[in-house]
Design a protein around this nucleic acid. Structure first.
Lengths: 221, 221
DNA sequence: AACAAATAAATTGTCGACAATCTTATTATT
DNA sequence: AATAATAAGATTGTCGACAATTTATTTGTT
């Protein structure tokens, strides 16, 4: 999962990563309460480190906390999804534009050949790709923007929330191949140093995947 | 200062607000170390609450922390400023567009009349306005976007960082009146429900104020 | 004197206990 | 029986102490 390599040096780090994974992957269900004592016995650490982990999750918008009451995992709503993808569209659209300006040729070539390497697998067997491949792609472009604050924002917060939505709505399905083609076009625009086009294509790309998820969400109710 | 009313219910909240203010206002200088014991004696609370406050500041990108070493106030750089305003441009541009779609008429009128009320003071005496007035303006438009995640992002993190830059670079000066006129035009676009124009104007407005600050920053070195 | 190793000091990370607050259950009153 | 007041239970917030790690100082060796 982690391209942005996060090493857990402290015990609190480890607990934070574990908790985040369990929530994002849906093993701890949305809306459920996070009891400090319960979690501290479960992970065999003190309440203090659980507390710190929960605080960090709150900063990521993965849990909500009320003073003297406790923390709950956020509940997924279609409004929340829309809001999240609006933000992604704005930020990653910008990232694509900046990447067209700033991304080193070496990184662009690397990304380009990475995509080519996936081509056969994607076109023939329709499996895979959506999860790790998509995330990897987006992350590389964010890094290519060379805006450090943007990198932090997305890799600390937004991506995990977005993944939580996708995972819990059971994202598979037929979007795989068209997404691949969109990726190809975006990289081409970046390689041509056409920031304007790169932004437009990236925004479209995110809109599509938003619609894809929104359909599933409306089917669930 | 706080339009987004933040009530300190817990002791940790209060410490967090105090610390943030001291840093943003420059009483604790950029780049300086934050000792947990030192601060706990200063604010007369336990180390645990100081720790929690520092963790929150870290989540806001106001301090940086290394495990087993400690936390330092971030250092202001021209690159950091550029990055921050790039993000603001994207997010607040979007907010202006969304506000043109979603902001209730009542709120628009309220904002409009607020600006008119400031007109005389701004045009005659060239003083004031930049600080609280500008922040209030931007915040109202963010709220008008009705994107909750966006509101959280900006009012928890970005605005305080942006303010830190402005305060510590001694923002006063002749930008006051032109900023006022820009605000007027943005509100007009929103009132006309012209999202496209509102976004363009907002982006320009932020670019201008970025340039204004960047000049000061380059003069300092 | 210069460098390396060992020791000491200081700082952060973790823990268990107590205090304050909220939630639930019980009792009292109408 | 229904509602309000009170008490009991459970959960979070805060604290001081100890452990682990880093940094500074001292000591030892060449």
């Amino acid at each position: 999962m982690n391209f942005f390599q996060e090493k857990a040096v402290t015990s609190s780090d480890k607990t934070f990563f574990q908790l985040r994974e369990e929530i994002v992957e849906g093993h701890i269900s949305a809306g459920s309460k996070l009891s400090e004592v319960e979690l501290s016995t479960k992970y065999e650490v003190s309440r203090a480190v659980v507390r710190e982990a929960i605080n960090r999750l709150e900063a990521c918008n993965i849990v909500e906390r009320k003073a003297n009451v406790g923390a709950r995992v956020v509940t997924l709503t279609s409004e929340g999804l829309l809001e999240l993808y609006q933000i992604r569209e704005a930020l990653e659209g910008m990232a694509a534009r900046l990447a067209a300006q700033n991304m080193p040729d070496a990184e662009i070539n690397q990304l380009s050949s990475l995509l080519k390497g996936q081509q056969d697998e994607v076109k023939q067997r329709n499996v895979y790709y959506q999860e790790a491949g998509d995330l990897d792609f987006h992350y590389r472009i964010i890094v290519g923007s060379q805006n450090q604050q943007l990198i932090t924002m997305l890799s600390n917060g937004i991506y995990h929330l977005a993944r939580m939505y996708r995972v819990q709505l059971g994202m598979t399905g037929p979007r795989v191949t068209t997404a691949y083609d969109e990726h190809i076009h975006i990289v081409r625009a970046i390689a041509n140093r056409d920031g304007e086009l790169a932004e437009i294509l990236m925004r479209r790309h995110i809109q599509y995947s938003k619609n894809n998820i929104a359909v599933k969400l409306s089917n669930m109710k």
